[in-house]
Design a protein around this nucleic acid. Sequence first.
DNA 1: AACTTATATAATAAATTACTTATCGTCAAG
DNA 2: CTTGACGATAAGTAATTTATTATATAAGTT
Lengths: 112, 112
Amino acid sequence: MDGLDTKFSALADPTRRAILARLSLGEATVNELARPFEMSQPAISQHLKVLEDAGLILRRVEGTKRPRRLAKEGIEAMDQWLGMLRTALEKNYDRLDGVLANIDTQKKGEMR
Amino acid sequence: MDGLDTKFSALADPTRRAILARLSLGEATVNELARPFEMSQPAISQHLKVLEDAGLILRRVEGTKRPRRLAKEGIEAMDQWLGMLRTALEKNYDRLDGVLANIDTQKKGEMR
DNA sequence: AACTTATATAATAAATTACTTATCGTCAAG
DNA sequence: CTTGACGATAAGTAATTTATTATATAAGTT
């Protein structure tokens, strides 16, 4: 429905990361989210659309307000992809690449 | 030296994610990395520059070759930021937001 | 020295992004 | 029914991105 391209691209903006950080504390409306920024309300609405299209946040209807919250599944998808790299890095720790890397960078390290 | 903007933006491209996935198996040179893609070598070199500027890969010099490998610390930086969201989602699991969210989604669909 | 292999850089064009201001729709209070 | 608060959408614009081809550099081979 919404790919990793869109998700990571959504995270590539500091305003949007700040919005997500704020939402990690709980729901918030557009105006609440816009207040901390020196940016117009439409700009924030557009950022929220990007986050929603990426599947990273969800919207609820409450009167004239539209509170947003984090979308668990969307965030987990990115998390899983990164997990692949993370475990690769753990496994490769003592492989040839790592050895070469350390020698090459001339940085001593805690080799085991 | 390199911010989260640059890192996440680097991941927002499927070619670059594929390159990282390949590097998770071990070092590779530019030509090795370019081969699987229907894309010119300069294009791959530019993608590699993006990844390097983002602090996600490192380069080594070996004759005329420039083997790349994953840069552990850069990847961990993104991982940590996402970790913040992840733990927030775990903690919020049974909070009011989540309850409202579920009730609401069952009732009505809404448009933008 | 001349040639090949491996990679980087430059110039350029097309597509996308991230704002702005102006405007529109909707709910809810008086 | 009018008004004000909340939020979405539209149109315009400047900056950035991603590819291409052509060219440059540097090391390895004969």
